[in-house]
Design a protein around this nucleic acid. Structure first.
Lengths: 194, 194
DNA sequence: CGTCTATTTGAATGTACTCAAAAGCGGTGG
DNA sequence: CCACCGCTTTTGAGTACATTCAAATAGACG
């Protein structure tokens, strides 16, 4: 299946696109292949694209003053990989987005995206709903972070994203949970014993 | 100043409303006065309103199996107080929203809100931008939670919301940071000594 | 002024981290 | 096919960050 068709199917979850709107996205989204360990965004660069993932997986992370990376989120098939803050402000990003598996993505430039919003209000609607859903997810994660132990957060993660837990190395999941790889290893061990 | 005018000024931060759109909101938003400790939403109830805060402050929180409350966010003047998940799904909420100061709010019902979206696409746009900004804030908080110590998170909170840190009791801030009141008290003490 | 709640202080405990070393695992080349 | 390299995961000892519980102190309100 063509990538642009997969994107169209994605929009069917919200307000489906008509022919004119489909033609509009078909003419501005560009397909790119990304190899494992390649970066979609690096700290200091302005995030100039909205990126839709067709296949593969990326991680978004920040690096602290001790050069430690902290995974903010994983982004997989049918999800959007963008630093919203940098994209809209057009200022240098504080974040990295790196492929943890080889990927196929569709990208739209900043200007084309703003055009899409202006000419076809349906995209305002659809992206409003998309981001609202992401907001709810993120709020849930905050609640976990302030109320649950590392073990509970790990179980929650595995429950919410069972596919991801298998696809990713332990160290990446530990970073996402905000704990050390050593400790996550211990947690897994304890769970097996139970 | 009338509450509805304050809401109109709020929208001026995005795409300003024309006369027709202003009349539309003026006819569907209803003012309510809320006393301290009164609830805008309780666990088990469906969140049936979108709520805009004119004055005062509320906390959104969840209660865990040990009956402990965990503050997910504070909501003040010119912010929106809604459980999006419950509002759109029309299913019982897991959350509470309670006034920590007496408040004046403007509320719009679920059906009126959907009407607004349908008849005036500008609201899709404006609320898309509003939620995008909130998403960025929340993502920053997640990064803090997974990467910073309690002391760093406290300093970050005070830096981001200096007004809030004075307005709220220590115990409420501790709950927001995901630590015990005792420990926040110790943190403050250490900071004074430094 | 007394009552109620919030904050502070401190001791004992638990959760999670650091550091170091060993074990496992995938890929590469001989 | 096996030996070796580099990287990830595991294991364990010692430590630091944060919690629990209890009691004392301070503040807020009638």
């Amino acid at each position: 299946m063509l990538s642009i068709e997969k994107l169209n199917i994605h929009f069917n979850n919200f307000l489906p696109l008509n022919d004119e709107e489909f033609d509009a996205i078909a003419s501005v989204f560009v397909e790119r292949r990304i190899r494992r360990k390649q970066f979609l965004l690096q700290q200091g660069d302005v995030c100039r694209h909205f990126t839709f993932v067709i296949t593969g997986c990326a991680k978004m992370f920040a690096v602290d003053q001790n050069a430690k990376a902290h995974n903010i989120q994983f982004i997989i098939e049918n999800e959007w990989a963008t630093d919203l803050s940098s994209f809209y402000s057009e200022r240098p990003s504080q974040l990295y987005i790196e492929a943890v598996e080889s990927m196929i993505v569709l990208q739209i430039s900043h200007d084309d995206m703003l055009n899409l919003y202006t000419h076809y209000p349906k995209f305002d609607r659809n992206f409003r709903v998309i981001i609202e859903q992401k907001y709810i997810e993120l709020q849930d994660r905050v609640l976990q972070n302030i109320s649950a132990t590392a073990e509970q957060r790990y179980l929650f993660f595995v429950g919410q994203f069972p596919h991801l837990a298998n696809r990713l190395p332990l160290s990446q999941i530990a970073s996402y949970l905000g704990i050390t790889p050593e400790f996550l290893s211990t947690i897994r061990n304890n769970l097996v014993k139970k």
